[in-house]
Simulated scan of single mutants.
Amino acid sequence: MFSPQGPSLRELVVQAMSSVERGYDLLAPKFDHTPFRIPDSVLDATADALRPLGPFGRGLDVCCGTGAGMRILKPLCQGRNTGVDFSTGMLARARRAHPDAEWLQADVRALPFAEDFDLAVSFGALGHFLPAERPALFAGVHRALRPDGVFAFPIGAPPPIGSRPYWALLGFDLAMRVRNAVWRPPFVMYYRTCPLHAVLADLTAAGFSVTTVPLTALGRRDDGSPRCRLVLARRT
């Protein structure tokens, strides 16, 4: 799962026993050599789905990490793009990789923007928010977008019940709950707390008009359904 340039087991344990912010600060130098970085195939499929809706003005990458989302914002957006994250270490890596973008350290549950952007994207971040925190996150993105602006992010289909991926994700989430029950500060990272129906309901409650499109380039499950969908939430 990890390249030789990635973190050691000891480094991963130290990161997992830290707060989310401190953990990502520690992981930042090697983050792009881990499977946690969003795959290029997902970025490419997202860009292909968004291209017919553009071009856009300014773009925002929510929970930007090391800046992988800039790979699609740059060709889709005509204005200057911004990435926001709360990890100093991750932002430092992003700033070095994309010096032409703006980078802001902030809590995305309280985004400091108002009608500044035409497209917002986010990749792999929802698991870092408890269900009760999603309304604040989505409200902030809604506020940051101009009228008719779009918030887009991919969301994977749940693995079939009883499959190896199902048990792996269930085991990971249970381990994280035990860890957070006995150790402080908590490290919030769950794979099973953001089902599609709940995410769509929270987006609608935040004022978005929501649709989804299948990212067929990422394949289909055995039942023919797409492995991944792109959520398109428009500020109407």
Rank of each mutant, 00 (worst) to 15 (best):
15 Q>N: 06
15 Q>T: 15
16 A>G: 13
16 A>D: 14
16 A>T: 14
17 M>P: 00
18 S>Q: 14
19 S>Q: 08
19 S>E: 10
20 V>H: 07
20 V>W: 09
22 R>P: 00
24 Y>G: 04
24 Y>L: 02
25 D>M: 03
26 L>H: 12
26 L>E: 09
26 L>K: 02
28 A>K: 06
30 K>T: 15
30 K>E: 09
30 K>S: 08
31 F>W: 11
31 F>N: 02
32 D>V: 06
32 D>E: 15
33 H>G: 01
34 T>S: 14
35 P>K: 11
36 F>V: 09
37 R>H: 10
37 R>N: 06
39 P>D: 10
39 P>Y: 12
39 P>N: 11
42 V>A: 07
42 V>S: 04
43 L>I: 10
44 D>E: 15
45 A>V: 01
45 A>K: 02
46 T>F: 07
48 D>V: 08
49 A>Y: 04
50 L>I: 06
50 L>M: 06
52 P>A: 12
53 L>R: 15
54 G>D: 10
58 R>H: 13
60 L>E: 05
61 D>C: 08
61 D>F: 11
62 V>D: 01
65 G>D: 09
66 T>F: 04
66 T>N: 03
66 T>M: 02
67 G>A: 05
67 G>N: 05
68 A>F: 01
69 G>R: 07
69 G>S: 07
71 R>S: 14
72 I>W: 07
72 I>H: 01
73 L>D: 00
77 C>M: 01
78 Q>D: 09
79 G>I: 11
80 R>M: 05
80 R>K: 12
81 N>D: 12
81 N>G: 04
81 N>A: 05
82 T>L: 15
85 D>E: 05
87 S>T: 10
87 S>C: 09
87 S>N: 08
88 T>N: 10
88 T>V: 14
92 A>K: 14
92 A>H: 10
92 A>R: 14
93 R>Q: 15
93 R>F: 02
94 A>R: 06
95 R>G: 03
96 R>S: 13
97 A>L: 11
97 A>H: 04
97 A>T: 04
98 H>I: 15
99 P>T: 11
100 D>W: 06
100 D>K: 11
101 A>P: 00
102 E>V: 06
103 W>F: 10
103 W>E: 06
103 W>V: 08
109 R>F: 05
111 L>C: 02
111 L>Y: 05
112 P>I: 13
113 F>Q: 06
114 A>P: 00
